[in-house]
Amino acid sequence: MTLEFYGKKLGSRLLIGTALYPSPKILCDAVNASGSKLVTVSVRREAARERAGQGFWDLIKQLDVFVLPNTAGCKTVKEAVTTAQMARELFETNWIKLEVIANDDTLQPEIFGLVEAARILNDDGFKVFPYMTEDLGLAEKLVGSGCEVLMPWGAPIGSGQGFANPLALTTMRAYFPNIPLVIDAGIGAPSHAARAMEMGYDAVLLNTAIAKAGDPVKMGRAFARAIDAGRLAYESGLMEPRDMASPSTPVAGTPFFKIGDAS
């Protein structure tokens, strides 16, 4: 089944950030190699006459991908809402990755402000992609506010730890079978991305794992393959784990077998 966000079809389940790359060219090459069709971007203060923003905008336009602006760094509802409004005008999209951050060390979502900001932005015509914890009560409130995509963290942003709470993420998938779910943050290796797919998540969003790799372009390809493998596995139906061994070779007809040997 094709991935769809707010009625738009995406040809890839890998969503990637555009920060921290060694150069603009490597960023573009990595995005292309990864097959990603959605990149995240931000808004930042412009130094007068510097024109850095225009250069970055031209670069992103070349990539021919969906653009998802974020509200990274915002700590209050007001900051997040105003940043989203500025991003909508700058990037000509009503999609917003909504971040309201509680703490600089953990970059944990500030969930009360997140719900309030999501409600304001949904009412204002935005299509909100909330960066959130895996709490189901929070998820219910975000869906109730109008969010049609949820993006729980796997582990803290930039940590590369994979999944801090895999049980809760598995529960969330089961609880919301029909809402697109994206693991956002914490993915450090292609194996984490494959596991997210095997868990039935619809997509993964990551930045550092590709941008800070020794070879970001090759790592982009690695993530693309891991995601294909994980998704195929999920669609194929994974076997149930067992506590005890179970022989795969037929027992019947085993040479030298005697009834009394069976335990």
Binding site: G17, S42, V43, R44, E46, G53, A72, G158, N207
Partner: peptide
């Protein structure tokens, strides 16, 4: 303040203005 509203937005002493542009993000 939208691009169209800038010309009609008067400035006053001690106003605080933000001017932002597109930038890389995660």
């Amino acid at each position: 303040v939208s691009v169209l509203a800038r010309i009609g937005t008067r400035l006053n002493e001690h106003d605080s203005i933000e001017i932002v542009t597109p930038r890389q993000g995660g």
